[in-house]
Nucleic acid binder design. Structure first.
Lengths: 122, 122
DNA sequence: ATCTATTGTGCGACTAAGTCGCAATTAAGT
DNA sequence: ACTTAATTGCGACTTAGTCGCACAATAGAT
């Protein structure tokens, strides 16, 4: 596991740092997408460092991101990537896995987001 | 057309105002989702008024909204609603209409967003 | 093990989308 | 026209996210 994380960075020619390890550990452990607010109390790095490292991970195709109706960005490991349902009313995010794959000629689909009214808000 | 707009508001028990008419005219004319920036030079109302009216339209199920990778909110008439592809690289938005309907047990899907890399960015 | 170039980090200031409070204005029924 | 409640403009504010810079840490070369 620790080795996995080290390899992720090595394979991408990224420097191995404490902040990046911490971040990847959380993203891997977490089964749902997280935003900065979700993890800020658990991480030991500045806000700027969080965002810069996330941006780097996104660049390197390690992490996926999307924007929610709460106006915040959410992040998850690309390997765990699956569709999400975002409630426009309570802003909850639900992971969906029983959705057929979507193919779009000429486009490379990285994430699928469904928005609407969740079970509780109906 | 002018009558249609008047009726949209009447049917929702909303007051008929110049700002709302202007906004609905643009949203109806436009075939793609627009953000505040897209229309600010064409409208004759304050930013706050724009957002308050959009919020009202969304509340009244006249307008759909979603957030793009450019961190801005986009709006379109609910009747025109169709899936969108958002490019994570150039932030372009493409309307999709050859996508089967998505049904999700217990959830009310209001919009479908696919994100990834567009034809030009690949 | 130390040295060095390069990359990453913390800090504080900044940006920009969107929101809020309030006083002035306007819609629409009486 | 009169009244009341909803709407508007304005300016101040909020908040997610970014940037510049000085300092610190990494990784390869010596």
């Amino acid at each position: 596991m620790f080795m996995d994380i080290k390899n992720i960075m090595k394979n991408k020619n990224m420097r191995f740092t404490v902040a990046r390890t911490e971040l990847l550990e959380i993203l891997i452990k977490e089964s749902k997408p997280v935003c900065y607010e979700d993890v800020k109390h658990r991480i030991n790095m500045d806000k700027a460092t969080f965002y810069r490292n996330i941006a780097k991970f996104v660049d390197e195709d390690i992490v996926n991101s999307f924007e929610s109706s709460d106006k915040k960005s959410y992040f998850e490991m690309k390997v765990d990537s699956h569709p999400h349902f975002i409630c426009n009313y309570c802003h909850s995010i639900k992971c969906i896995d029983n959705l057929g794959s979507v193919v779009l000629e000429g486009y490379e689909v990285e994430s699928i987001i469904l928005k609407g009214k969740c079970t509780l808000c109906r």
